[in-house]
Design a protein around this nucleic acid. Structure first.
Length: 256
RNA sequence: CGCGCAGCUUAGCGG
C-alpha cells in the first residue's frame, strides 16, 4: 500500500519519529497494518537499538493474526543482534522453525552477526556450518563471509579469518554466472574487515599485502574511506609513519 | 530472455 512505501522511505532516511507518527495515523484512520508495514517498523526499531520494542511489535502482529514471513523474522533477529542479545536472536530463530518458515541467507547472516557482536566466534562458525548442512541448505554470500571474518578478527583468530577469505576467493572463482559471482565476490567491506583483523591480531605487517591483494585482479576492489581509515589505523598501530603518509597521499589523489 | 524501490543481513575511526 501507499502507507507501506511511505514507512519504508522514512526508514531509509532515518526518520524514525516520522515513521512512528505515520504508523499511529494509520491506526487512527482505521488502515490495517500488514506484514510489510510491521516489518518496516521492526526494522526501524532495529536501527534504533530497540529490540524490546521490536519484540512487542512482532507479538502484536501475531496477535492480529498476521503470519510472519521470512523477512519479518529476519528483521526481528537483526534487532536482537544489534541489541547484542544472541540468545534472544536464537530463540526467535527457533520460533521461526516451529512456525515452519524456511530461513534464508539473511536469516543466517543476522544470527551470525548476533554472535559476532556478542564475541561468540565459535558459535558463529557453528551456525555457518549449520547453514550449509540444513536440508534446505543455504549458500553463504559475501555478507556471511564478511561477518565471519570480522568475528574471527575480534576473537584473535587471524588464521581463521584468512581461511574464510580463501573460501570466498574459491567461491568467487567457481561462480558460474555473473549473478553468482556478484553475490560472493569480495568487496570493500571484506577489505576493511581483513585489514582490521590483521590489526587486532597485531599482524600489522599483513595489512598492506591484504589491501593490495583486494584492490588487484581478479578482485579489483575500490577502497573507500572506511578502508583507508582501517589501513591508517593499522599502520599507526604498527608505528609505520612512512607507509601511513604514503597511503594518505594516495587517499587524497583517489578522491579526485 | 533477463531486469525493474512496499519490508529484512555485513566492515573502520572519532565523538
Amino acid at each position: 500500500w501507499t502507507y507501506g512505501a511511505l514507512l519504508a522511505a522514512c526508514r531509509r532516511c532515518g526518520a524514525a519519529q516520522r515513521a512512528l507518527a505515520l504508523a499511529r495515523e494509520m491506526s487512527q484512520q482505521g488502515v490495517a497494518h500488514n506484514v510489510y508495514t510491521y516489518t518496516t517498523l521492526i526494522a526501524i526499531c532495529d536501527r534504533a537499538r530497540q529490540w524490546q520494542t521490536a519484540m512487542v511489535l512482532f507479538r502484536r502482529m501475531e496477535a492480529e493474526g498476521i503470519r510472519a514471513d521470512v523477512a519479518a523474522y529476519n528483521s526481528l533477529i537483526s534487532a536482537c543482534a544489534r541489541g547484542r542479545n544472541w540468545e534472544q536472536a536464537w530463540a526467535v530463530f527457533q520460533g521461526m522453525q516451529r512456525a515452519r518458515v524456511l530461513p534464508n541467507v539473511r536469516t543466517y547472516n543476522s544470527l551470525i552477526s548476533a554472535c559476532e557482536r556478542c564475541g561468540q566466534y565459535e558459535r558463529a562458525m557453528e551456525i555457518y556450518a549449520k547453514m550449509r548442512r540444513a536440508q534446505a541448505s543455504v549458500t553463504p554470500d559475501r555478507c556471511t563471509f564478511n561477518t565471519l571474518i570480522s568475528a574471527a578478527g575480534r576473537a584473535g583468530q587471524l588464521a581463521a579469518a584468512l581461511a574464510l577469505f580463501r573460501e570466498m576467493e574459491f567461491a568467487a572463482k567457481d561462480a558460474r554466472t555473473p549473478k553468482e559471482l556478484s553475490s560472493v565476490a569480495p568487496d570493500a567491506v571484506t577489505m576493511s574487515a581483513l585489514v582490521s583483523a590483521a590489526e587486532r591480531c597485531s599482524r600489522w605487517d599483513l595489512a598492506p599485502p591484504l589491501f593490495q591483494r583486494l584492490e588487484s585482479p581478479p578482485h579489483n576492489v575500490r577502497p573507500n574511506t572506511i578502508c583507508y581509515n582501517a589501513m591508517l589505523s593499522a599502520l599507526a598501530a604498527g608505528a609505520d609513519a612512512a607507509a601511513a603518509a604514503a597511503l594518505f597521499e594516495r587517499m587524497l589523489s583517489d578522491s579526485e
